[in-house]
Design a protein around this nucleic acid. Sequence first.
DNA 1: CGTCGTTATCTTTTGAATAATATAACGACT
DNA 2: AGTCGTTATATTATTCAAAAGATAACGACG
Lengths: 123, 123
Amino acid sequence: MPSSIKNIFKKGLNISISGSLWIESGTERFLGPGPVELLERISKTGSINQAAKQMGMSYQKAWRIVNTLNTQTAKPVVIVQTGGEKGGGSTISDEAKQLIKYHGQLRERFTAFLKKETIKLKK
Amino acid sequence: MPSSIKNIFKKGLNISISGSLWIESGTERFLGPGPVELLERISKTGSINQAAKQMGMSYQKAWRIVNTLNTQTAKPVVIVQTGGEKGGGSTISDEAKQLIKYHGQLRERFTAFLKKETIKLKK
DNA sequence: CGTCGTTATCTTTTGAATAATATAACGACT
DNA sequence: AGTCGTTATATTATTCAAAAGATAACGACG
């Protein structure tokens, strides 16, 4: 049996390569999986508040995410209305939808990378 | 100008894809960059204590890392001697050196992936 | 058997991120 | 003007992880 990384570890352990991925500008990191899901739910519910509730997240945290996103983008990706009919609400821009799509594809490539490395490790 | 992800963001921001990577078994994650550097320094100094100091890390934390590694591997990767000449000391096994090498190569492939994605994003 | 610097643990403290609480502002509509 | 549910923001608690501190055990060697 040729020396392999795999059998340095205890037998029976399910070793895998794992990681996380995000988009950042300078030190500010944003647009990981959480924010993307938030965008999707805002789009569906029309409300930051309800989107947050669905995710078991506080409104404050959701708002911070939205705010970070909006300050990093040329035009706000979440367009909000405070007050008004039904008290207000939020929708997401076309650019936001583009970002969601892009993020999904990026993530697919990343998980493929991880999978490949995990398989390679187990050889 | 065709619609591109890049110019959804504010002009002038240096957007990049970033991430982190580690090896894990079940829920236990280990062997990220920190532990690897620790192994290298233990190898050079012959002491967990000194290695930790060089990295500005507490001995306790270093020991926990070493302990986690040693309990995940078939044979201890850090072989320790408590007491004795000079009070004791630690060396690393050949397997540890293999792990260091493997991790370096893995990390190279990962940074290449990130770089590629960042470039693709900027097109 | 005393010395040495290290390994091995336990306990306490600190600090920072997260969550909870509270309150105000908003504006269409009746 | 009053109602509605939302957005906006500040303040206070809580939790949890990391750090710090303290103490004991270890064993070759003079």
